[in-house]
Every structure is written in structure tokens, then in C-alpha cells.
Measured scan of single mutants.
Amino acid sequence: LVRYRTISKIPQITLNFVDLKGDPFLASPTSDREIIAPKIKERTHNVTEKVTQVLSLGADVLPEYKLQAPRIHRWTILHYSPFKAVWDWLILLLVIYTAVFTPYSAAFLLKETEEGPPATECGYACQPLAVVDLIVDIMFIVDILINFRTTYVNANEEVVSHPGRIAVHYFKGWFLIDMVAAIPFDLLIFGSGSEELIGLLKTARLLRLVRVARKLDRYSEYGAAVLFLLMCTFALIAHWLACIWYAIGNMEQPHMDSRIGWLHNLGDQIGKPYNSSGLGGPSIKDKYVTALYFTFSSLTSVGFGNVSPNTNSEKIFSICVMLIGSLMYASIFGNVSAIIQRLYSGTARYHTQMLRVREFIRFHQIPNPLRQRLEEYFQHAWSYTNGIDMNAVLKGFPECLQADICLHLNRSLLQHCKPFRGATKGCLRALAMKFKTTHAPPGDTLVHAGDLLTALYFISRGSIEILRGDVVVAILGKNDIFGEPLNLYARPGKSNGDVRALTYCDLHKIHR
């Protein structure tokens, strides 16, 4: 019993810090008490220290592992850092350059016999395009090294910054494609005289377009951006097909006994025919423009016929181009109408809503002055909100995010209106959640004399007048207030005048 009563005193000691020596009952000389009392004092002292730490809000209350900052290894790049964003855009520009100039170089340097010394005699450094290609190869190699040090988000939505895990993730992902696209074939085969082989191998750079397509997928929600990307894709495919079309004609031209190829026909049409040795002929500019003209006309199913396939190889390629053109029509131009419709969806919704308003007016036989006010209010409210119901949009977000959005939407009023000066951010967040926005066209009466005042109004834009009878008592403008002081009276009061809008007004109100 003594032991039980001794232990039962522990909660009292913990909360009230009572010393055991003052209790005459606990001072009985028993061996059990002498053993338990020192333990009680020690526990009391420890609990006292913990309570003191909690009340003082000291940093040592938290466990040590929670006080440590997340460790980022040296030379690790955050995937959302500004440097990584700028670097990704730079790589994107280099990939676009590669997609345009690599097929052009591979096709127009394929057994090209233009006048001038061969590239091997001039030297590697004197070729501007080769120098640019070398810079692109170096940048792609540097990009691989950067990807080995860039964080990523795993399946659990955690940012991984450990170098080993980053390397394994990159090896399992895009490393092989990036490595093949970054191989400097110019340096590996330079001086061997195989410019045709170098041009063909350099087309491996186009593998990076797969990554670019995935990154550009984030802009699919913007109709104008999608339309622009589709047109660029169409032009890029036409450019690639033009390079292939020229390569076919250029390879067949020296081996044909009869002059029936499209390059021969082009030379005869523009007065620059090929001679018996295969030299001469149109310039590279004429060849490229004509090839691009043929691919565009074939892809769009126009086909004027002034550039036509004559050999079997050219006919087979033309059939493939027609098939590609039909697929592009289905996948690209078939979506253009939907994209344009999405661009004008706001206008369509406006006309639909206006039609419903006019049908309501016609069905209920609203008189002319009231009908005009109804239409003007709808037009003004639509121009202010673009038909978007803010309350319906915010309803799907958590309250903390709703408060931040409301604070942002009402920031101008909260910053410049005098009653809100000096208020804490928590108070402003709470008030912003209570605001209701209303609009009024010129001549609209917001409050009639004798109406119950259940709200306090803040003028965000425009001006109003307060009338008693036919006498203008006051004219209020931006950041002015009218209405009933909230919670100042037990019952809502009545208006002693009319409140009429002089201009288009936007008002925020808080109800009782």
C-alpha cells in the first residue's frame, strides 16, 4: 500500500512540481520508500527539464536528425535550378540546329562534286560548318556529364541527390541515346576521305529529338503553341524528305545512260545542264529549293507536275512521300480545326451564355430598361472574369491554397485601402477568403433606401454616388468604403439613402 501511494504521487509531482519531503505519510521509514524516492526525484528532475525545454521552444527539443539540413553532394545540380533551365534551352537550340543542318550536310555532301578544292585539302579548321559541328559534339558530351550530376524525382516524389543513384537512373534511361548522339564521328573518321560515311553517321544526332519531343509535351495545353509546333514538325519532315529526294537524284545521276532524272530535267529547265562528264548542272541553292518544293507539294497532295519522278527509285520514294503525307494530314492537320476551336472556345461560351440571357429575357418578357441593365451587367461581368467562376475553380483546392490565391487576387485593395494598413498577414488572409466580388454598370442602383444592410462594401474600381431623395450626399471612388460596420450592432440596419454607380464599378463586399 505504501508503495502504491508513493507511485500514485508521481503525476502530481510531474505537473505541480511538489516535493515529496513535505508529505508526512511518505516520510515513514520503510525500505521500499527509501529505494523508490531517489528514482522519483530523478524522474521528476528529468520531466521538469523536458517541460522547461518545451515551454522555452528551444531548438534542442527536436531530434538531432530533424535539425540537420538535407545534404547535397558537391557538384550536384538541382533539376529545378536556373542554371539547369538555361542549359536545357541551350541544348534545345543545338538539337534544332542539328535537326536542320545534319540531314542537309549528309545529303548535299554525298558524292558532291561542286567546283573547288576537296575538304581534305583545305583542312578541318577552315570549314565553318565542321567547326560548328565540333562545338555541338562537345556541348552534347558536356550535357552527358551534367546529367550524371543532376537530381531527379523518383516514384515516391522524392528528390534524389545521391550521385550513385543518379548515375544508375541515367544509365537506365537516356544515357545510350545521348551517348550515340554525342559521338564525334568527324574526329574519329577525319582524314579518311569518307565524307559520305561521316554525313550518314552524323544523322545519329537526330535521336535527341525524342527527348525534345517529350520536353515539349508540357506545352500541349496551349493551343497556339501546339499549332506552332505542328507546323514546325511538318516543315521539318518536309526538309528531311527534300534532303533524301536530292540524295536519290544525286546518286543516280552519274550512272544513268539517259538523262531522265529530276536533276537533269531541272538543269535543262533553268539552262544549267550537266555536261557529258557529269559536272556542271544547277547550283546547290536551286537543287535544295526545288527538292523542298517537290516534297511540300507531295505532302499537301497538290502535285503540280513541273517536278516529277521519272526513275524507279524516284517513283518509289514519291509513293512513300504520299503515304507520309496522308498520315500527316490525319495526325496534324486533322487537329488544326480542334485547336482553332479551342482557341476561340471563350468567344463561343460568351455567345452561348448571351443567347441564354436573351432567351430568358424573351421568355419572361423583361421590360426594355431592365433588359438593357441585365445585358450590360452580363457584358461587364464577362469582360472582368472571362466567364470563369472563381468560386467553382477554387473549390477543388485546399483552404490554405485558397487563402493564398484570394490574398493575391485582392492584393491591390488590401495594400491601398486604409482600414487594412497594419493588419497582420493572417488577418488579411482571413479577410480575403470572405470577400465576394460584384460588378455594376453605370446607372445601376446597388442599394435602395430602406434596404437591409448586411454587408460592408469596398470599391475596387469606378465611382458611385450616394443620394437622399434627389440630393447627392457624397461621391465615392476607388478604395472608399460604404455599408454597415460589421458586428457593431446586434441587428442589421437599414439604408438611409440610395447608392448608384456612376461608372463601371468593381466592388468587394463582406457579409455579416
Rank of each mutant, 00 (worst) to 15 (best):
R211G: 06
L327V: 08
F234R: 01
S308R: 01
F234T: 01
L394A: 04
R371W: 01
F228H: 01
K287N: 01
C417R: 06
K425V: 07
T203L: 10
M433C: 10
A119W: 01
R214M: 03
R71Y: 14
F360M: 04
P70M: 06
A247R: 01
C417I: 07
N391M: 09
D178N: 01
I388C: 13
T98F: 01
S313Q: 04
Q379V: 07
E157D: 12
H264F: 04
L206D: 01
G396I: 07
I405E: 02
R362Q: 05
M256I: 15
T76Y: 07
R373W: 01
P309V: 01
A69Y: 04
P419V: 13
K215W: 04
F378Q: 13
Y288D: 01
Y80Q: 10
H408K: 01
W245Q: 01
M328Q: 01
A225H: 04
M322H: 01
W262C: 01
R373V: 04
I166L: 08
R74V: 05
A107L: 01
L343S: 12
L187Q: 13
P442D: 01
L374F: 01
A449Y: 13
L227D: 01
T300L: 14
T424Y: 03
F378A: 13
T203Q: 01
E157M: 15
V136F: 05
L327K: 01
T98S: 03
L374C: 10
L394W: 02
R342Q: 14
F228W: 04
G267K: 01
N275V: 01
A69Q: 05
E114F: 11
L201E: 01
A247H: 01
S301N: 04
M231Q: 07
T352Q: 11
K272S: 01
K434N: 04
I141W: 14
A125S: 14
M251H: 04
Y222R: 04
L93R: 01
I324T: 03
F420P: 01
T120V: 07
E158H: 10
N310H: 01
R362F: 01
K272V: 01
F185M: 10
W262V: 03
G396E: 13
S276Y: 04
A247N: 01
A430Y: 07
M139D: 01
S298Q: 14
N310A: 01
G193A: 06
M322T: 07
L230H: 14
P369N: 07
A99Y: 01
D178L: 01
F228K: 01
A338R: 04
G278F: 01
I144K: 01
G193L: 05
A99M: 01
W89H: 01
E115L: 14
L216M: 09
F333D: 03
P70I: 05
H169G: 04
G116P: 13
W240C: 01
G278L: 01
L90V: 11
A242N: 01
S192P: 12
Y329R: 13
A125L: 15
D217Y: 06
F435D: 03
P118L: 14
K285E: 11
G193I: 10
I284W: 01
L409D: 02
E375G: 03
V393P: 03
A99T: 01
L263A: 01
G193N: 05
H439N: 08
Q127I: 01
G443Y: 01
I91Q: 01
L374S: 03
H73G: 14
V131A: 06
I77W: 01
V336C: 01
L109C: 01
H79A: 01
V180E: 01
G123S: 05
T311M: 01
M256A: 14
R371H: 04
F360K: 01
K287F: 08
C126K: 01
D143Q: 01
G426S: 05
M322L: 03
I177L: 04
T300H: 08
I135D: 01
T424L: 02
D88W: 01
K418A: 13
F294W: 01
F83M: 06
A392W: 04
N310F: 01
P442G: 03
Y104H: 01
Q341R: 04
L187M: 14
C126V: 01
A213L: 04
C406V: 05
L197I: 11
T98W: 01
R71A: 13
K436Q: 12
F363G: 01
S258Q: 13
E252N: 04
A242F: 01
C406P: 01
P184G: 01
S258F: 15
P103D: 01
P82N: 04
Y219R: 08
N368W: 06
V142C: 08
A238N: 01
V86Y: 02
A247Q: 01
A167I: 05
L206S: 05
V95H: 01
H364G: 03
V210K: 13
R165W: 09
T113I: 07
V100R: 01
F175G: 05
D268R: 12
K395V: 10
C243Q: 01
S297K: 01
Y219D: 01
S331K: 02
Q68P: 08
L401P: 01
A204K: 01
D257W: 01
I332S: 03
A440S: 13
V132N: 01
L94D: 05
A130R: 12
F140H: 01
R358Y: 03
L200A: 04
K395T: 14
K418P: 10
S277Q: 09
F363D: 01
G305R: 02
A440H: 14
T424K: 09
L394C: 03
C400V: 06
V160D: 08
T290P: 01
Y97L: 01
H239L: 01
Q127G: 05
V168Q: 10
I361Q: 03
H239T: 01
E112V: 07
F420M: 05
D444W: 08
W262T: 01
A291C: 01
S194L: 14
D88H: 01
P117N: 14
C406G: 07
S301F: 06
T113A: 05
A155Q: 07
L230Q: 14
Y274F: 03
L129I: 03
G271F: 01
G346A: 11
D143E: 01
H73A: 12
E195D: 11
A235Q: 01
Y124A: 05
Y124W: 05
I177N: 01
E375S: 04
F363A: 11
C126N: 01
P118S: 11
E157W: 10
L94K: 01
A99D: 01
A119L: 11
G443T: 01
R74A: 08
L209T: 11
T290A: 01
K434V: 05
R205S: 01
D88I: 01
F333Y: 03
R205G: 01
R349D: 15
R429T: 03
A381D: 14
G422H: 11
K395R: 13
P369I: 02
I366A: 02
N335G: 03
I141G: 07
A330Q: 07
I96V: 12
P369G: 08
V180F: 08
C400K: 03
G334N: 01
A182Y: 01
Y104N: 01
E64Y: 12
